[in-house]
């Protein structure tokens, strides 16, 4: 069973290595850019967003490794996963910021509405 499993895993890699393709530079760049953007919007300060940013980084590293091994097709798919995680991290981070801003604005209106207006003497 262990031998069969090893065969299933190794065979495609060997074939790919023999085929020798790498992930596209454009895809790598796009994923890198998505990861960088997620970091810039503060994804690391939001626990859920930070988790997805971490997934994105790990998968990007994995994709780089696959690409170096000539598994371009698999690397592209892992890059797609990484990019999707990075974009989700960014979206989650923005959602938190937007909701906080909306809550603050609503609270300010409520507070201002409760502030007594000057009365005519």
């Amino acid at each position: 069973m262990k031998t069969l499993t090893r065969w299933i895993i190794v065979a495609p890699l060997a074939l790919a290595a023999c085929g020798g393709t790498a992930a596209s530079t454009a895809r790598m760049g796009a994923t890198q850019a998505a990861i960088r953007s997620a970091g810039e919007v503060g994804a690391e300060h939001n626990p859920t967003a930070a988790l997805h940013l971490q997934y994105a980084r790990e998968q990007f590293t994995q994709a780089e490794q696959l690409s170096r091994n000539g598994e371009g097709e698999r690397a592209e798919r892992v890059l797609a996963r990484a990019e999707a995680d990075a974009e989700l991290a960014m979206a989650l981070s923005r959602r938190t910021a937007a909701m906080t801003a909306a809550q603050q604005a609503t609270a300010q209106v409520r507070q201002q509405a409760q502030t007594p207006s000057p009365t005519t003497p």
């Binding site: 989700l88 979206a91 989650l92 923005r94 959602r95 937007a98 909701m99 801003a101 909306a102 604005a105 609503t106």
Partner: peptide, 13 residues
């Protein structure tokens, strides 16, 4: 889904 929430929050703000 997160973007929808974000845009709705933006509208509320």
């Amino acid at each position: 889904e997160a973007r929808g929430d974000t845009l709705q929050a933006d509208q509320e703000r």
